[in-house]
Write a protein that binds this DNA or RNA. Structure first.
Lengths: 337, 337
DNA sequence: TTGTATGCGTTATCAG
DNA sequence: CTGATAACGCATACAA
């Protein structure tokens, strides 16, 4: 592959001159510039990003760490980031962490080896202390979907407690008094916080939430189905089902439907996230909108600008980037009769 | 960030020695090796991937070009690639092409600037000639979901004609004689080929497919809804609906249900792809399995091995990597009464 | 306006 | 077993 040197030789000029026209530097004669440009075209010259990164000490790239590309939620997240990256002309380096401390760390380290100084990472398994350390070292480090007080100015996150309250209150407002929760079995913050929010709202309303009416399972459709089967088998009594996410809610709904219940007439079901599936399933799922794409885009922009202007980050030390979910009313929730 | 030089200084040895322990090179004393290793740990040394790529003339990365991360189909594709990349310890560089010639080319060129010699690209908009040129230049260039005779040994693709035949034949076997097709309006090969397969099967069975019963729309749920609305408005007569993909089929189904038709009792609907949604929607969609994740994984492996052993590619010049879809029977298709 | 020289972090080829 | 040293492709301070 042609290098800057080859171009220089072909054009009968020095490396420096070629480098200048590549970078649109000043101080180059118009004729020389034009001539060199055509030669570059002819020879199919492509700047070597690695060499550039090496000499510039920065990489024009944006790292992304997410759990799993196959999960629609993360795909949307990645998409939000990718959109910004393309606009800013930076390459995205993608790594997956699969919600395991070891893998998440490895993913970040790989990114670090590529010297990408801007990255948005979704980490659930890594400890606060590790993340704080990383965040301090890496100028454009942005944590998405997690809040850590010490580095809150590098966190773009959703208020899950508010979310839990919101979904419970929505049901309460419609007259529901008997609740079941289909939660995630993973020991990470999100399910705790959402459950917390739910509990707070119910307590405030004076409604009891029997621990037996909370089922923990894998946060996917199958997990939702199983959880609902368990609830039903146990003879749990409820008219409102709160799902940890849309997949679980949809799964729970499937089981209910299969068992002859009517949704929403007999039982109302609400999801969380508002991924595509909530619009596809029948009845269409009432859910909470998790503005993940918007959040991801903001995270990407923050990462990029903090990386290029570290002082900008310091001057915003007391800021944080909090989002709140909103209710999307569709067909799976109804007033109690 | 600490460099190899810093380590050398701290350890009181030369660069060469440090480099050797980093690469597990031979000829280093055990004590020296151990000492250097601890020093590297202490100083938090991380090899600079850019410098490495520069001197090695290769990049330990895998480029991916797809249309849109937000599309579940592409997310699954990307996931298949990512799985292999992680196993082989290479970084994935992701770029999107959004089915536009210009953008697709730009995406590939960016990858090229990063000197990644292995890449799997999904291109629909670029011309054969351009792709052929690229494929010849780049050792590990693999084209996914597209077949080009001249570079067939670098193509991993699905037989869409066979797919079209398959879906039509499935309906025929169940007694259907009145067909409607909900196709994509994009001027790319896939819809043509699928339609071709459908036509071939119907002709062979002596069943007529009225051109008025083919509707072209955007290949998503909304497009499916609109297409079906048009069909219905026009008073088209059919008992079997063949969708371009699952999203369109689901959309068509939604409209049918909304209009009071029963699926599959009145009308049968079949999709294509077997993405998540086909299992979530109600009734569950009968569809064709597009083994995209498997294909993507194979593509990634091919790309990586061709990149590291170019001769291997040459010795397989007459091979190609063709896949055939299979029917996944679920709930949206029934025998005609 | 153009050219020369140096260094970015690493690997590899030599000597020692 | 270990150490100099020359690349790799590029940008830039400094000369001319």
């Amino acid at each position: 592959m042609a290098t800057i040197k080859d171009i220089a030789k072909a054009a009968g000029v020095s490396l420096a001159t070629v480098s200048r026209v590549i970078n649109d530097g000043p101080k180059v004669g118009d004729k020389t510039r034009a001539r060199i440009k055509t030669i570059m075209k002819e020879m199919g010259y492509r700047p070597n990003a690695n060499a550039r990164a090496l000499v510039n000490q920065k990489s024009a790239s944006l790292g992304v760490v997410i759990a799993e590309l196959a999960d629609p939620f993360f795909a949307t997240l990645a998409h939000g980031i990718e959109t910004i990256a393309r606009k800013k002309n930076v390459q995205v380096l993608l790594s997956t962490g699969s919600i395991e401390a070891k893998t998440e760390l490895k993913a970040i380290e790989t990114l670090l080896e590529h010297r990408c100084e801007a990255m948005v990472v979704h980490s659930k398994a890594l400890k606060d202390s590790v993340l704080i350390e990383l965040a301090k070292q890496i100028p454009g480090f942005i944590l998405i979907n997690r809040y850590i007080e010490e580095i809150k100015h590098q966190c773009v996150w959703l208020d899950n407690i508010a979310g839990g309250q919101l979904m419970a209150n929505h049901m309460l407002k419609l007259g529901h008094k008997k609740f079941a929760v289909v939660s995630s079995k993973y020991q990470i913050d999100d399910p705790y916080q959402r459950l917390d929010g739910i509990r707070q709202a119910l307590i405030k309303a004076g409604v009891e939430l029997n621990e037996e009416n909370i089922e923990y399972s894998s946060p996917d459709q199958e997990g939702g189905e199983i959880a609902m089967q368990n609830l039903l088998t146990r003879g749990a009594d409820f008219t409102a089902v709160l799902g940890y996410n849309d997949a679980m809610a949809a799964g729970a709904m499937t089981t209910l439907l299969d068992q002859g219940y009517h949704v929403p007439d007999d039982i109302s079901v609400i999801g969380y996230d508002d991924v595509l599936l909530s619009r596809y399933c029948r009845p269409k799922l009432t859910t909470l909108k998790y503005p993940i794409e918007m959040m991801a885009s903001q995270a990407a922009e923050l990462a990029l600008s903090f990386a290029s202007q570290p002082n900008l980050r310091e001057s915003n030390k007391d800021k944080t980037y909090k989002y709140t979910p909103t209710i999307i009313k569709r067909e799976s929730v109804l007033k109690t009769r």
